[in-house]
Structures are given as structure tokens and as C-alpha cells.
Design a protein around this nucleic acid. Structure first.
Lengths: 180, 180
DNA sequence: CAATACAGCACCGATTAAGTACTATTTAAC
DNA sequence: GTTAAATAGTACTTAATCGGTGCTGTATTG
């Protein structure tokens, strides 16, 4: 369903937060606190980001994390790559049987790869710096409103803020971020 | 992980198959047989497609399904919409706490919506007809090769074909079609 | 040497998707 | 008119994956 995982969402959140003061050292605990996320979760994300050289870490007392590169040179695609273990690969036509060999020579795959490429490009076009200073609409393909794209979510943020200070771990904690 | 669900994958398969002879009536059993999928699964997909007016159905003996519209007028986005119950909506910044109100006014969301829009466009640009007659590269944004996009899958199709005639329901039947 | 903070690993719980089964309804053929 | 074929709908079961947590180890500072 083309959804984005929570972890990746957290990743963009954390990275964006750090991009405000790129030279500062943020400890995992501090980030967890400012963002209202669980410390273990934040740790996990930061570790993954560190393994992919998106953040650099300093161990020991007064250690912490900071961006490894300027925010201009980090793309959303980088974050996705770091946080999703499954490699960026397109759908096989279908796992099951031999349509490919039978009739179409699997042009379906070719088309899925094109779609995939476009998605990838979209992810690469948005830099972390754009997350702070909003992107001019021109950067991305579609400028104005698209028909069936829902305004989506965010209506309950105020409520969430009022209700609890720490991670919402209730029955409502499922991912509500589908892309499709 | 921005992956596409199996059901949607099946949907494109089935629709593409039917697009070869748009006027013919295909029974669910026949489609299941030719595509090597389980009959219940194919049924499920076709019913969903029917509910969204992508295929029209004829009940009773000698009934079956056919495309409800010309292949030119059916997009991949249509299929995705029909087969994914979760509405096309973008990620909230993060489900947990109040970053939005705190510092960024949630520009992150704006950017995710842009990305979402681009993805949506990519899906709308590919018509079912393109799946048979391959799309000219120009139609989609990125013409040539993109760096980190893996060639992905399809290597085991021959093996799958040789090994079994019916749905691969083994331990290997998990989705291998991540987009990311 | 003690306290702080990252690194890596392994585990557990819960949500969700995938597939299946059963029953009802409709239409064609005999 | 009855039977057979085929779709329509619903509910259920199972399995895989994600999200989250805890523990142990290592490095650095004071």
C-alpha cells in the first residue's frame, strides 16, 4: 500500500529537528524528550542513521549525535534508505507464475520500474534543508492541487498534545500515515 | 517501506491480462488458471475491482468479468485505489507529539504531501494500455538510469515456473516487491 | 574509577495483510 | 421448471512484519 513506516517518519522528524542547529550535539535522551518519543526508539533510529553516515556520533560523557553532512546534502531518500532494511527494489510482476514468459515478456515489470524510478526521484528531490525552509512548489512535479489526494491527518495533533506528554501507546498508536 | 501490496500487484496482473482482449468475458476460474493464482484470491480482487467500476461483471452461467472502460482510460492509480482500503493520505508528521505546534509549524507535512503528490502523479500517468504497449520513457519524469535502484526480482521466475504450476504458497511466498 | 552516553543484539507483542471457506443470488441451458 | 455455472458478500484463520523494549558491552570524560 505504498505506506511509509513509522520508523522512517521518526527519522525525518529527528533529522529535521537536528538540522536546526547542525553543529550542536544532541543526546538521544534529549531528542526523545523534545520530540515526545520513546528513548529506545529514538536510539534505534539514530543508530541506524549513524550506520549510514547520516549522523555522526560521539561516545562517552557529553556525547551525542549531529548531522554528518550539511542539511542541503541529505535527501529524504537517504533517510528512507537508512531506515528501511528492504532494498529499494520494484515489484516482480507477480510472485506466482509465468505471465512474463507467456505473453507480455513482462512489460509490466518495466512499467513498475518506471513508477519506482519516479518515486525514487521524488524522494531524492527533497533535501533535509527543504524541510525547514519550505520547498518552492516548483521543485516537485505537480505544483497545484491534485484531485484525489486527501488532506490527511494532523487534525488530531492538538488533541494528542493535550492528552499526553509521552508516546501515545494506546490503541490509537497504529500508523495513520498511508501514502496509499 | 513504500511497498506495494500483493493484492495490488495481482490486480495489475489481472487487469493487464484482461486488457489483451477487452471484449471477452473472463471467468474468475479462467483467470486464476492462466495466471497461476488461487481462485479465491482472484475472486477477491475482481470483486473489489468491480465495486470500483474498473471491471464489469456478468452473473450466472457463462458470466464473467471484462474491463469496464478502455485500457487507455484506466490508470494504475485507479487499481491502487480500488485495492487498498486505506485512503490515499500522507503521513502525519508523526503520530506522537507536538513538534508541529512547537517549532516548524509542521512544514514537514507540507513536504510529505508534495512527495505524495508526485507519487500519485506517477501512478496516474501510467495507463493500463501502457502495460501492454510499453510506455515511451518520456512519459515519466526520469528517463535514464537512476543510481541506487536495484534491478530487483524476476530472476527466480524461471525457477518458479519450472517448480510448480500453482500458487507458490511455500515459505517463500512473502512479498518481495518492496518499492523501498 | 565512576558516571554518562553510544553500539549492538535479541526478544516479545500487536497490528495487518493474505488467503480460505461458506452461503446467497443471479442467469443460462436443458 | 429445474439444474448448473458463476458472481456477491461476509466472516474467519493464519502468518509475516513492524514497532517497541531490554540488556550487555564499549568508549570517553571528569
Amino acid at each position: 500500500m505504498l505506506r511509509i513506516s513509522k520508523i522512517t517518519d521518526y527519522g525525518t522528524l529527528i533529522m529535521t529537528h537536528m538540522a536546526w542547529q547542525p553543529e550542536r550535539l544532541y543526546s538521544a535522551a534529549e531528542l526523545a524528550d523534545s520530540l515526545g518519543l520513546g528513548l529506545p526508539t529514538v536510539s534505534k533510529v539514530l543508530k541506524a542513521l549513524g550506520r549510514h553516515q547520516l549522523v555522526s556520533s560521539l561516545r562517552g560523557a557529553h556525547g551525542g549525535y549531529k548531522l554528518a553532512r550539511p542539511a542541503r546534502e541529505i535527501t529524504v531518500a537517504d533517510i528512507v534508505d537508512a531506515l528501511e532494511e528492504q532494498p529499494f527494489g520494484l515489484t516482480e510482476c507477480s510472485a506466482s507464475s509465468g505471465v512474463c514468459g507467456l505473453e507480455s515478456g513482462c512489460r509490466i515489470r518495466v512499467n513498475w520500474m518506471h513508477i519506482n524510478t519516479v518515486v525514487r526521484r521524488a524522494l531524492e528531490d527533497v533535501k533535509l534543508a527543504d524541510m525547514i525552509e519550505p520547498v518552492p512548489h516548483v521543485v516537485l512535479g505537480a505544483p497545484a492541487a491534485l484531485p484525489t489526494v486527501a488532506a490527511s491527518g494532523h487534525g488530531d495533533h492538538a488533541a494528542a498534545l493535550a492528552a499526553n506528554v509521552h508516546p501515545v501507546r494506546g490503541p490509537d498508536s497504529r500508523a495513520k500515515h498511508p501514502i496509499s
